[in-house]
């Protein structure tokens, strides 16, 4: 009897913490192969820095998933925002200036503009999904294409003619490369976004209403929640996150092109689901999604670190996604 109970607990433990167990296991394996070099502050900092914009995208995506919807427009919105913020953050002397007559702006301006662009895309998504009642999957697929097209058209404007952007102002580049007390700004921004999202989700009425809408939209409507408003807001927040992530990407890489952000939305969705969000809506936590993002970047970084081809990351990621869902399905199927 006692034995049975023990094995049951182990099983429950594995079910609940499978993600963390896998991550720890992977870190141990990579650390052993690399002779312990993997376990350093520098590696941790690199992984977090690389994850920063992914975290921001995943946080936005989580809002939409928790509200019971889907959003495929994330990646291309990141790309568009990256190009726009890059084009507004160039030095006056750069030989291929996107807007030749534009004065040098404070670094915050391109960031705010790209957030605004993301917000606009998000509102458009929200309108199409909740007002025109186009299924979210298809609506955002359409948006994805529109945004990509708009990005390419913008990016192809003379004199740039689709050449990668560069020559950023130092103040803008610093967002991506600078640090305070050894902590990169990118990590600080990502954690600030997570904190804000966590507070919004768990401490405010809006957060509670998003969970309610995702859990049962009809019950939410009957209880006096404006489902249209909630959907608009979730898409708008998601869009704003994509916009911010776009600027972070541009600043981090010191460049930008219309191919930026490709398939970020799929990575974000995978991170959310692996991180414990229910694909049906109504369930999702900030720490879960954070680890969902980190686990993919640990794989990414770790495999390169031990000298394996980075193409392996796709194979390993795919296995983890399938495994995580397989465990998840069993977790909720209690009997």
């Amino acid at each position: 009897m006692l034995k049975e109970k023990k094995s049951f607990n182990l099983r429950a433990f594995l079910m609940n913490y499978a993600l963390y167990a896998i991550m720890v296991l992977m870190i141990i394996v990579i650390a052993v192969i690399s002779g312990g070099k993997f376990l350093s502050i520098r590696v941790l900092r690199d992984i977090l820095t690389q994850s920063a914009s992914r975290i921001v995208v995943a946080m936005g995506c989580m809002f939409v998933i928790v509200s019971g919807s889907a959003d495929l427009s994330g990646g291309r919105t990141v790309g568009f925002a990256a190009v726009i913020s890059g084009s507004l953050a160039q030095q006056a002397t750069y030989y291929l200036k996107f807007w030749p007559s534009l004065p040098e702006l404070p670094a915050i301006v391109p960031v705010l503009v790209s957030i605004a662009v993301g917000l606009g895309v998000g509102c458009f998504n929200g309108f199409v999904v909740s007002k025109l009642k186009v299924p979210a999957f298809l609506a955002t697929l359409g948006t994805q294409m529109i945004v990509y097209g708009a990005n390419c058209l913008y990016f192809n404007k003379a004199p740039n003619n689709s050449q990668p952007l560069g020559g950023y102002l130092d103040s803008f580049g610093a967002i991506g490369t600078g640090s305070v007390l050894g902590v990169p700004y990118l990590i600080i921004i990502a954690f600030a976004v997570m904190l804000a999202v966590w507070i919004l989700q768990t401490k405010t009425c809006l957060g509670k209403e998003i969970f309610a809408v995702g859990g049962n939209p009809e019950a939410a409507r009957v209880s006096g929640i404006n489902v249209f408003k909630i959907q608009m807001i979730t898409y708008a927040i998601a869009g704003a996150c994509y916009g911010l992530a776009g600027s972070l990407e541009a600043a981090r890489t010191g460049s930008a092109s219309s191919t930026y952000g490709l398939s970020y939305e799929l990575d974000a969705i995978a991170s959310c689901i692996v991180g414990g969000c229910s694909a049906g809506g109504g369930v999702g936590t900030v720490p879960g999604v954070f680890f969902g993002v980190i686990i993919f970047n640990v794989i990414n970084y770790g495999l390169t670190f031990i000298g394996l081809s980075s193409y392996w990351q796709f194979v390993v990621k795919g296995i983890i996604i399938i495994g995580a869902i397989a465990v998840d399905v069993r977790k909720y199927n209690k009997h």
Binding site: K208, F211, A212, G215, N216, E218, A219, A220, R221, V222, S278, G282, V283
Partner: peptide, 13 residues
Amino acid sequence: RASGIIPMLSVME
């Protein structure tokens, strides 16, 4: 079920 409970949320919520 259809328009009352939000199944995965707590009794309190």
